[in-house]
Write a protein that binds this DNA or RNA. Structure first.
Lengths: 254, 254
DNA sequence: TTCAATTGGTATACAAGTATACCTAAACAT
DNA sequence: ATGTTTAGGTATACTTGTATACCAATTGAA
């Protein structure tokens, strides 16, 4: 064996993961390619080097590269090697502002429609009860809807509020873009402050089913509480945004 | 067969996923539990119901429930059923503001230290070159570092800039919290505007290795460009934040 | 032509995930 | 006591992912 290539060797497979090695490798290489770590025009990355880097076998590497080939990221030719073909980063996306008012404004501009999935009143979780300062055995009004862009669901919303005010909200009302306005009118109180938290999470089967995305796909999770002037939380919204379709953008003067 | 329980049946396994069914189910149930969809005190969710809901077999459901049991979310007793035990949501976390200045401020308050992984100059990707308006064959200065909290890496940063200004930046300088200040001094220009985009992504092997998290774990990816008064991008930062440890929070008056 | 490099493939072996079908054990109500 | 409900388990069979150790085919250079 000739010592021609330096070892890299700080990356290793996740042997606790249930995700097959060849998928782990394919995804990792995909990100390296789209982030420009390999010269797109030509050459690079031989099977043997990859076997060494990821400490795995012929077959596993070949399966990984087959997947990259299927997905159109590389071409492979006997005797020549593997060449990077496409280097496209993300496909399409919506850009949203991070502060609530900008988010709302940005979302209005999108050419999307809303579909109400259901409106119910149930006993809800402690977490929701606490956020809305409601009693533990009290029923709560709950509305679920999705946002659809070109026939594709892109985000999923659940809203909670006091049933005594919201019982009269119709499916038609609930399908309107400006849900806060609808609620304000139902509750009879002006919303003066919104508290928003934003998390990065992955999709489980419930969300995958609604949004039609794979299990484990990245998501933004946003939880908003809407407060009256007196500071009381009137209304709670939980939203999931497809990570492959949404980007939050801000420009800050320093 | 008695028709005692209504069908739910809109959720289905992701049969294209490489993640085993029992993991998909366990993760889905975990989220249902922590989001309070099952009464924590007692009862609920029998094996047969789950077999029906997820359209799978005895063994698969049992493996899923074993996993939930291992993770401490349920207890199972023969003849009685499965009871929800803990309902803890997320463990610990940092709260960051979404706008850049708030983020910077929030991060300073954290009791963390920075470790510089390496400083190099290389040919970088088209994407980085474009953002910094540099020539395609031009070398670029690159610095990688991680933020460590109680011995655990929590975020991973890569910075790019023009090598003619940054060549003199030492590892010690690079380990300082206020990297913008360091760069400003090196480049000799005041930064006046920051453009930030925030994405939700999942970890690949490269990031998993650095942050010590599982493959597929959720992450925030933030890309910041730092502009001078003239509008020129002087500096580029790419950051990954552990999704299980960071929350972005804003409060907006309406 | 010959050789080295590189992708592609075969054979064998083992482990894990899953399905089907059936059986066992504990708890409780009647 | 008996039966129902529910978790736990067995047996068999199939598929997929992976490792090891080979071999085959293509390309280009010496």
């Amino acid at each position: 064996m000739t010592t021609k290539k330096r070892k890299k060797e700080n990356v290793s497979l996740d042997r606790n993961s249930s995700v097959p090695f060849f998928i782990q490798i394919a995804e990792t290489m995909k990100r390296r390619i789209v982030s420009g770590q390999y010269n797109p025009g030509k050459q690079l990355l031989t099977g043997e080097e990859l076997e060494n880097e990821f400490q795995t076998s012929n077959i596993t590497i070949r399966k990984a590269m087959e997947k990259l080939k299927e997905d159109g990221f590389v071409e492979r030719r006997r005797g020549l090697g593997t060449t990077v073909s496409k280097t496209d980063p993300a496909p399409l996306g919506f850009e949203l502002g991070t502060s609530f008012d900008k988010l709302k404004e940005a979302i209005k501009k999108l050419n999307t429609r809303l579909k109400v999935l259901d409106i119910t009143t149930t006993i809800s979780s402690e977490h929701v009860q606490n956020l809305l300062s409601m009693g533990s055995e009290q029923e709560i009004w709950q509305m679920k809807r999705i946002r659809i862009y070109k026939g594709v669901p892109v985000s999923y919303y659940t809203y909670y509020s006091d049933p005594v005010h919201c019982a009269g909200i119709s499916k038609k009302d609930a399908a309107k873009n400006d849900i806060i306005h609808t609620i304000e009118q139902a509750v009879g109180v002006k919303i003066r402050r919104v508290r928003q938290i934003l998390r990065s999470v992955v999709s489980d089967l419930d969300i995958s089913s609604v949004l039609g995305i794979p299990f484990g796909a990245p998501l933004f999770f946003s939880e908003n509480t809407y407060h009256s002037a007196s500071g009381k939380a009137m209304f709670l919204g939980q939203s999931y945004f497809r990570g492959d379709m949404f980007v939050f953008r801000t420009t800050s003067p320093l």
